[in-house]
């Protein structure tokens, strides 16, 4: 069985590795150049200093300027990062969907399932080996991406919790990739033709990923709130890397006055017409800025939870696929 699986998929494995090698050949030089610039602008030092609470105002301004220059130079790479998050689903499309669908489409399941190896064993060995191969690939991808996006995430305010970069690095790519492959396999056992199976895999993957990222992820842990006055001080520092879920301005009694906005007034500031700062928004004395967020140090917890969800979904789909294989003739 192992020999057969290897013989059937060796060409595909070669092409996959080749694809990843080409990708690495493109990304590694970019990553190295990003890191050189990052160090040259003194941003490594900045990251360390900004992590401390008692950072001087001048340092902060210098660092912000440096971050700004870095972002100007490399910000467009965030677009590339968007493209890179499609890799797990591509693996699912080309490794998962054809695994059963292609056998059935070409009729070879009637050859292989009527030899001396039971269908359960066939399915488990095949799914297991492909799963293991894909797992190695996903670990490499996750590590590589973590290294590659690090400078980009460190200069961005929301840090590693950013909408694209969270999905790109750490352990979540493992969950996504296994899920995509399992979804592909399952779709192949239901629709039994490669193209429909691939289409369903693509649609299903996007749907589930979006639903979990948008609906579930912000609630893995109860979000924290912080408040700060509207005059002077401004946004408290030290929250770099926090994932801000929502902001607004509340009056002293807690009623939300203006959503999705913040205000900063000079101490005791008045508008040109003599009204108090922010009065046009309906602010009363004692109003404050309000923010709901997930702190930066929950990054690995969130990564773990999200990976767990997708691995569990993958296992469920593989179980269903094995059951369906018994019904195909």
């Amino acid at each position: 069985m192992i020999w057969l699986t290897w013989r059937q998929h060796r060409k595909q494995a070669l092409y996959t590795l080749l694809g990843f090698a080409v990708l690495a050949a493109v990304l590694v030089p970019i990553g190295l150049s990003m890191r050189t610039t990052f160090a040259d602008l003194g941003l490594t030092d900045c990251v360390n200093q900004l992590a401390r609470a008692d950072v001087a105002q001048t340092t902060r301004e210098t660092c912000d300027a440096g971050f700004h220059r870095f972002t100007n130079q490399y910000g467009s790479l965030n677009l590339l990062a968007v493209l890179l998050i499609t890799l797990p689903v591509l693996v699912g499309l080309f490794w998962g969907a054809p695994l059963v669908a292609r056998e059935v489409e070409q009729g070879t399941h009637r050859f292989v399932w009527t030899q001396g190896v039971g269908r359960n064993q066939w399915a488990l060995v095949k799914f297991g080996l492909v799963g293991a191969g894909v797992l190695v690939l996903a670990v490499g991808y996750g590590l590589g991406m973590s290294w590659w996006v690090e400078p980009l995430t460190q200069t961005a305010r929301e840090g590693r919790f950013g909408l694209i970069v969270f999905d790109l690095q750490g352990v979540v790519p493992i969950g996504y990739t296994l899920f995509a492959v399992a979804l592909g396999i399952f779709a192949g056992t239901v629709w039994k033709r490669m193209l429909p199976a691939m289409g369903i895999t693509l649609a299903g993957f996007i749907g589930v990923r979006a639903a979990i990222a948008v609906l579930a992820r912000p609630h893995y842990q109860p979000a924290l709130t912080q408040t700060f006055p509207i005059d002077g001080g401004g946004i408290p520092e030290g929250d770099r890397g926090d994932w801000v879920l929502s902001v607004g301005i509340r009056n002293a009694d807690g009623a939300m006055v203006a959503e999705d906005t913040r205000i900063q007034c000079p101490p005791g500031g008045k508008g040109p017409d003599g009204r108090a700062c922010g009065a046009e928004l309906g602010l009363k004395p004692g109003a404050y800025n309000w923010e709901l967020y997930q702190p930066a140090d929950r990054f690995w917890l969130f990564q773990g939870i999200e990976t767990g969800i997708f691995v569990a979904l993958a296992l469920l789909l593989v179980y269903l696929a094995v059951r369906r294989v018994r019904r195909i003739a």
């Binding site: 070409q106 009729g107 070879t108 009637r110 050859f111 009527t114």
Partner: peptide, 12 residues
Amino acid sequence: FVAQDTPLYRDF
């Protein structure tokens, strides 16, 4: 068993 259209792995 030889199935209809004698399916075999064509690249083997």
